[in-house]
Amino acid sequence: MRFNLHRSFYFTAILLLGLSVFSCSEKKVETTQTEVTTEAATETKSDEKIILFFGNSLTAAYGIDPEDGFAGLTQQRIDSLGLKYRVINGGLSGETTAGGLSRLDWFLEDKPDIFILELGGNDGLRGIKLTETKSNLLKIIDKVRSKFPDTKIILAGMQIPPNMGQDYATEFTNMYPAVAEEKDVTLIPFLLEDVGGIPELNLPDGIHPTEEGHKIVFETIWPYIEQTL
């Protein structure tokens, strides 16, 4: 899915509004999310394998009950299949790739059998140099592999509207397949396929999916997770 012109203008305007919302709510969400992920990690049983979603507010299911977000829906599907996997939600509102790299060690205290990397969107919205963003993504993957060579890594691709210029937006989109190819990891081409830029599937901020939107995102990512189980 690519943003059409109508959706792009809508999405660009609403993204700028959403960034201000992030700044005001980030500390509160960070505290809450840290508590949630700490509890999840503590409760992980030794005989259960771990699926770790490591990302930003999209992973954290900003604005809705985390159980209704795509990470929570993954746990529900896992449970329905009777599989011994525990999903850990490592989403943090406002997170950049640099921030993710700095907090990664805490999440690697236990081995994740599947690691879903969903970062970069906030870098793009803030106009961070893409060489820096790409470098951070590569370093995150390297750090996971260095400690746990057998961990299966899935990279969630993202797209942004051209508010930073069309060249930047195009380079941003192409960055994900380049990282996936360089590090030989599984790529989800676009996490928000059939959701991004569609008003009725997003909260009023225009950035975060509604419960219905998260259901669609889950169906996008599940085949990639399923093939690694």
Rank of each mutant, 00 (worst) to 15 (best):
V179M: 08
G90L: 03
F172W: 05
E95P: 00
R103Y: 01
I116P: 06
V144F: 10
I128K: 15
P177V: 06
P112V: 02
F172L: 06
P177M: 03
V179I: 15
E118I: 09
N163P: 03
R145A: 11
D113W: 07
T151I: 10
D105F: 00
R103H: 03
F107M: 06
P177G: 13
G91K: 00
I116E: 07
Q166M: 08
K139V: 03
G91I: 12
T131R: 14
M164N: 14
L92A: 07
I141C: 02
A180S: 14
E95S: 13
N136Y: 00
Q166C: 07
S102E: 11
L138G: 04
N122H: 07
I114V: 14
W106A: 15
D150Y: 05
K152G: 02
G157S: 09
G165M: 12
G94Q: 09
I128S: 13
T173S: 15
E171G: 08
G124H: 04
A156F: 05
E132S: 11
S146N: 15
A180P: 01
A169M: 12
T131A: 10
A98D: 06
N122S: 02
I140C: 11
Y168R: 12
E132W: 12
A98N: 09
N174A: 09
G157A: 09
S93D: 01
Y176L: 12
L92N: 10
F115S: 13
P112E: 02
M158G: 03
S135V: 03
N136D: 10
P149E: 12
T97F: 10
K147H: 04
D142L: 02
K152Q: 15
Q166T: 05
L125V: 14
A178D: 12
D110G: 07
Y168H: 09
E118H: 02
I116G: 01
T97I: 05
T131P: 01
V144M: 13
S135Y: 12
E132Q: 11
E181G: 07
G121F: 05
S146A: 13
A169H: 05
N163C: 00
D110Q: 15
K152N: 13
N122P: 02
G157D: 08
G165C: 08
Y168M: 10
K143I: 06
P161E: 02
A156W: 04
K111E: 14
L155S: 10
I116H: 01
G99C: 11
F107W: 00
G127Q: 12
I160C: 07
N122E: 05
G157H: 07
S102K: 13
K134I: 05
E181Y: 11
A169I: 03
A156L: 13
L117R: 11
M175Y: 05
L125E: 03
I160S: 08
L125R: 04
D105I: 01
Y168E: 06
T131Q: 15
Y176Q: 04
K111V: 01
I153P: 04
G127K: 08
L117F: 09
L137A: 04
I141T: 04
P162A: 09
P177E: 10
P161S: 14
A98G: 09
E181I: 07
L155A: 11
G100E: 03
F148D: 07
I140F: 00
K139H: 04
L125H: 09
T133Y: 05
D113Q: 11
S146H: 11
G100L: 01
